[in-house]
Design a protein around this nucleic acid. Structure first.
Length: 257
DNA sequence: ATGACTGCCTCTGGCAGA
């Protein structure tokens, strides 16, 4: 089964592109981030028409995540990241699909650094690690995927110098990500592309796409039960070049039976 | 040195994004 993540940067503006991608690549599960709509604005009927059932966690203007599944409704397991009752951002949604626990996340960007937004990012990452330890202990096949807003290594970015002051690659951000990996999770794209050089995001500005000035921030982390079944990963790079594209590309993993 | 795109919901300009 193919499980994908796609930061779509606005589901209303992106709907034609999104439907096109679903029909052309037909992932079993598609995790979306930055739907940027309240719950009542989610276009569930458009997905039903092409055979996808969805659950979603919206928010006005910003954030928002959704999980789509081909031919089956995702069984919701967790809405919102636990650990802080004052956090009202819609950035986390969990569901079971075909016996696999799917955790879809949109991790805070954290810019500008330093500042309160960066502190929010780091505290969110610690809460995520706590949640992932609970998932780990369940021993259920689990994938935690989405827009992590972390550039893990220097070979995951076109220019270290251009991004050195950005929250996406501060040592604190990277260390928090590495602590999660050190708990035993497998970064699927990294594992099958150990030399780096794979981008999942290209800025709209400065001709970044045309110059291939990108970096890797959309990740798929696998529990041991799924890492053993990993057969392929991919980035649907071509979609970044289409009309009215998101600034991210879809990223996917293929899991064997 | 600065801003540079894009989407959102409108205080159609200001904020957020990365």
């Amino acid at each position: 089964m193919r499980i994908a993540t796609y930061n779509i940067n606005g589901i209303k503006a992106r709907l034609p592109r999104l439907l096109e991608w679903l029909e052309e690549t037909r992932p079993a599960v598609a995790c979306l981030q930055e739907i940027k709509t309240q719950d009542e604005g989610f276009p569930a009927a458009e997905f039903e028409k092409i055979g996808y059932h969805a659950i979603w966690h919206g928010q006005k203007s910003f954030n928002g995540v959704a999980i789509l599944a081909d031919g089956t409704k995702p069984e919701e397991k967790q809405r919102g990241l636990p650990g802080d009752d004052t956090d009202d951002h819609s950035r986390y949604l969990e569901a079971d699909v075909a016996g696999v626990r799917i955790a879809n996340l949109y991790l805070p960007n954290g810019n500008p650094h330093p500042g309160p937004k960066f502190e929010y990012k780091l505290s969110w990452m610690e809460r995520l690690r706590t949640r992932m330890r609970t998932l780990w202990e369940s021993e259920q096949p689990t994938i935690v995927l989405g827009d992590f807003n972390v550039i893990p290594h220097n070979d995951d970015v076109w220019s270290v110098r251009a991004m050195q002051d950005d929250a996406l690659m501060q040592p604190e951000s990277r260390n928090a990500y590495q602590r999660i990996l050190a708990d035993g999770w497998t970064d699927a794209v990294r594992t099958l592309n150990p030399r780096g050089g794979v981008w999942t995001y290209w800025d709209y500005q400065r001709g970044a796409w045309q110059r291939d000035h990108g970096f890797r921030i959309d990740h798929c982390l696998l529990s041991p039960e799924l890492a053993d079944r990993l057969t392929a990963v991919g980035v649907d790079k071509e979609y970044r070049g289409r009309e009215k594209a998101s600034d991210h590309t879809p990223v996917w993993v293929e899991i064997g039976d």
